[in-house]
Amino acid sequence: MIRLLIRDLALAVRAGGGFGLGLAFFLIVIVLVPFGVGPETVLLARIAPGILWIGALLACLLSLDRIFQLDFEDGSLDLLATAPIPMEGVVAVKALAHWLTTGLPLVMAAPFLGVMLNLPGPGYAWLVLSLVLGTPALSMIGAFGAALTVGLKRGGLLLSLLVLPLYVPTLIYGTEVARRGAEGLAVATPLALLAGITLAAVALLPFAAAAALRVNLR
C-alpha cells in the first residue's frame, strides 16, 4: 500500500497531476476577499475564520474527482481491484494522498493568508489546529463521494452536490474553533466535535467507499 501512496504522490507532483491547483485556488480566493469586502480591518477580522475555512473547503472540492476518475479511465482501478490490496486500503491510501497533496499545503498556507484578512493574533494557532483536524475529514468524505460517482461521465457536478452537505458539519465546527480561538473563548467543545467527525469519517468511510467502488466496477 505504501507503493500506491508513493505512486499517487509522484503522479500528483508531475506534470498535469493537479498538485498546487487547490493551493492556487485558495490563494486567489483569500487574496481577492479583501478587495471585494474593502479595507475594513474590523470586518475582515470578524469574517477571517469563516472565509479561510470556506476557501480551504472549496479548494479541497476542486480536486476530488481526480481521486478515482483517472485510475478508472485508464483501467488501473480494475487492476487494483484484482490486486492483493483490499479495496478499503486503496480508498484509505488515495484519501491520504489527496490530503497530503491538497489538505496539507492548505494548512501550511493558511497562517500566511490569515494576515491578509487581519486574523487576530490568538486565532492563528487555533486556525491551523482546526484545519489540521478538519481537512482529513474533507479528503475522506470527498473520496467517498468520488467513489460513488466514479463511473459517471462529467460526474463532477453530482460529486459536488453529494459532498457539500456532508462537508457542512466540518465547516461549522472548524470555523467555530478558529473564531472562538481568535476571540479568546473556550474552544474545547467544537474542537472535540471536529475531531469526532474526522475520526468517524476515517474509520467508517473507507468501507462505504470500497463498497461503492465495487458496485461501480461491475
Binding site: 505512486r7 503522479l11 485508464d74
Partner: peptide, 8 residues
C-alpha cells in the same frame, strides 16, 4: 485498458 500511467 492497460492501467499504464502516462507520466511515469
Amino acid at each position: 485498458a492497460d492501467g499504464v500511467k502516462a507520466v511515469l
